[in-house]
Each structure stands twice: as C-alpha cells, then as structure tokens.
Design a protein around this nucleic acid. Structure first.
Lengths: 241, 241
DNA sequence: ACCTGAACACCGTTCAAGT
DNA sequence: ACCTGAACACCGTTCAAGT
C-alpha cells in the first residue's frame, strides 16, 4: 500500500513552453507536419495531450510558436551576413541573406506550409522585414520602389518559393517512363522535349531531375537584376499608387 | 402501413461525379476550403456523406477533382487570348494569359492552397504547361532558357503568387493603429515609414492598403522583362546543367 | 447499382477531478 | 500549479445491411 512505484524515476525536467515548441519543431522535422498532433506531441514529451494546454493556449499557438522558432533561426543566420559596404553592393548582400535564409528553411520543410496558412504577419518577422527594407533604402531605393520590391520578392525574402511541380517520381520504372514519354510526344511535344533533356541531365525519369538550388538562384537573380535596373534608373510609379 | 411518404418528392436528379465536384467547388467558394468535409458536401447534395463514396474514391479524389475544375476554367480563359503574332510579342501574350488565369484563381481563393498541398503535377496542367512552353519556344527561347523560365515564373504561370503578409487588419481602430505606429517607429523605422505611406494611400490602417493587382503585375513584368533580356541576348548556361 | 446507419480510429478541446 | 481521465463534437472511412 505504501509503495511509491515512481520513486526511482529520474527527475523529469518540467514542461515549459520552450520545451513544448522544441519538441514540436523536432516532430514536424522528422515525421512531417501532419504528424504534429497534440496527442503525438504529448507522447513525445512523455505526457498526456491535455497537459500541453498548461503551456500553450491551443494548437494554433503551437503553430505560431514553431514559426517563431524558425524565424529566429533565419534571423540568426541572416545576421551572419556582412552588411552593405564598398565591396558588397546591395544585390550581393540581399542575395547572400536570402540564400542563408533558404538554408534554414530547407531544414524545416514544413515551414512554408505553416507560414502560408497564417493570414497575418508573424510578429517575429517585423524586425526581419524592417532590416530588408533598410538594406534597400540604404542602397538608394525610393520608398515606393522598396515597397514594390518587397512584394515582388514575396516569400523569396524568406528563402523559399513554390514550384507547383516538384514531383519526385522515383517509383516510376525507367522503361515505363520511356513509354509514357513516347505516348506524350504526339500531344505535348514541348513538354516531352523538355522532360527528355531534364531527365537525361540528372539520370532521373520524370519531372524530377531539376536542380532546385540553381532554379532558386536563377529566379532570384532575375528579380534582383530587374530591381537594380529600376533603382539605377530612378524608377517612379507610372500612374497613381 | 402502405403509405409512401416520399411519393410527392420531386424526382431527385441522380448523383454523379460531376455533380459532386460542382457542389464541392461551390462549397469551397462560399464557405471556405475548411468547410469542405465529406459530411458537409453530402448535406449540400441532400445525401449522406457515405453516398459520395459511390462516385469518388475518397476525399483526396474530391480535392483532385476540384483542382481539375479550376484548371479547366483557367485553360478555357487562357484559350481566349490571342496567340503570338506580328503585333503581339511573346511578352504581351504571356502577360495576357497569366492575367486571365489570375481572374479565374481570384474566383476560387482556396485553389492555391489545394494546388500547393499536392506533391505531383495535376494531369490537367500537362496541356497547359505544354502550351506555355510552346509559346516561349515559338518566340525563340532555347529549351534551357524556357525550362528555367518555367521555374522562375513558378505559380505565377497559373495566375497567383504568395505574399506572406496579405494581412487585412480591418478590425484595428485608427487611433489604436496610430499609437502602434508611434511605438514601432523607434525600433522599426523603415517598416513604420512604409506603413505610414501605404495606409495613407488607401485610407487603410495596417498592412493592408496594398494594391494586389498592381503588385502582381509589377512582379510579373519584372520577371518577363528579365527573361526577354536573356532571350534577346541568346543566353546560355554559365556552367553545367 | 446505389444509398444508409452504425461503427472505428482518429482529431482538437472542455471540464471536473486528482496530486 | 500542474497533470490526468473521461467526455464532447468533430473528422475520414469501412462495412454490413437495406432498397
């Protein structure tokens, strides 16, 4: 009766908001964002799901929290980039910053999904955007141009962009893929031609075989170069706001 | 006992895959994608949720189906655009096509979410992408450049792009917003300056007040102009793939 | 052939009860 | 103050039963 069955347990470190969020990030990283449920999260922490509500208001607060964690990592990474100087123009700095942010985002593949599911700006992004804007203003951007530049860069300022066809059809047999290409060639000549080249390049089959890093930098440079041209030309709005 | 209580009912038109998908699109349009549940969808059609499984394999098939519906509308809208000609250069045609696609997407605000939740290319997009590629090839793009152009345009080829801060803070009182701006001015000078201008422009308060259509076209033109410059310069890859 | 009701295995979340 | 168990209102989906 007087037995204390748990007496020998190692002292369980107390649950905190920090520990909950760290575990949530870990869970999303390793098992995917769909596996991030309150019950799974509790289990990961050796606790019932309902205990979590002592430290976070609800699941949305967990999602907000892990976004904060990632944004924190982005800001830390971006702070390492050397600032504007005589040798480093704004394009170099912006490029290096965005590629640093991208490295963080690649460690948290779920982050774009969670970020885009939010309707309002995560508070932790306020200082980040202020510094991005500051960089452009320092480089001589008008306020208007800097504003439109922010929109044009969009999610790229955070190091990601959506591709819409990042299909990894690894499970398609090469012979099957070849037959499919053959059948498509008649109806979709341009796409077929493209897929033949791409799959040849990377020894891959269908759709995949694109170099994500290259494509990201290609698109980024396209935008940065365009913005620099507008900046140098002292761009002003063609009409109204 | 012999009463037939439903005898006077109007003859219920039979459930079909088409009717299910049309109702699903309608439901998502009017009540949001989160309201698109099998039970709600059944109710909308005057039927139990389980009856739907006679016409669609599962919920994923419903999502795939409504994407097909939207892509069908996009293709129909894009087909109206005049093709490449002496008076209409590839940039004009691409621009008009993408803006036509955008009008469709604006009628189905949930479409980006559903499209991006897919991992593989929706089959209905295959002919669309083939025609986009074809337009660029006709205009003299190398296969490589056309390939990278597709990636650079990304979801913009379908008429949408993610902004990450499309916040509509309509519920913030003007006086409260003014105080917030005041408090932010010290720590985030550039963002504050921007928000002051933007909110002044549109008589709005915080974050909102940006002209979505303008920003979309600005970003689109930035990319199209950059691509045209590369095309005219007979761009070739700097190194490797 | 199509539709239904009950049931199952999951969600997020509440609430009263424990320590 | 923190954690728990049972319960509630939802999901998608299965399956045997109805017509």
């Amino acid at each position: 009766m007087a037995v204390q069955p748990n007496a020998a347990r190692e002292p369980r470190l107390p649950l905190t908001r920090e520990r909950v969020l760290r575990a949530a990030v870990e869970l999303a990283d390793t098992r995917g964002i769909d596996s991030l449920t309150m019950r799974n999260l509790g289990q990961e922490l050796g606790v019932e799901a309902m205990s979590l509500y002592n430290h976070v208001a609800n699941k949305q607060a967990v999602l907000d929290g892990i976004v904060e964690v990632v944004v924190g990592e982005v800001i830390a990474a971006v702070d390492e980039i050397e600032p504007l100087s005589d040798t480093a123009g704004w394009k170099d700095v912006m490029r290096a910053r965005i590629l640093a942010a991208r490295e963080v985002l690649l460690r948290h593949r779920w982050a774009p999904d969670v970020l885009e599911s939010r309707t309002d700006l995560p508070p932790s992004l306020v200082p980040y955007y202020d510094s991005v804007l500051g960089l452009m203003r320092e480089a001589g951007f008008s306020l208007d141009l800097a504003h439109h530049a922010m929109h044009a860069l969009g999610t790229r300022t955070l190091g990601f962009t959506r591709e819409l066809f990042v299909t990894q059809d690894k499970d398609v047999e090469p012979e099957v893929a070849a037959v499919m290409l053959q059948q498509m060639a008649g109806r979709f000549p341009h796409l077929t031609e493209l897929m033949r080249v791409v799959s040849h390049d990377a020894g891959s089959t269908l759709g995949s075989g694109c170099d994500d890093q290259f494509e990201f930098e290609f698109g980024l440079d396209l935008i940065l170069d365009g913005l620099e041209r507008l900046r140098a030309g002292a761009w002003s709005l063609p009409s109204g706001s």
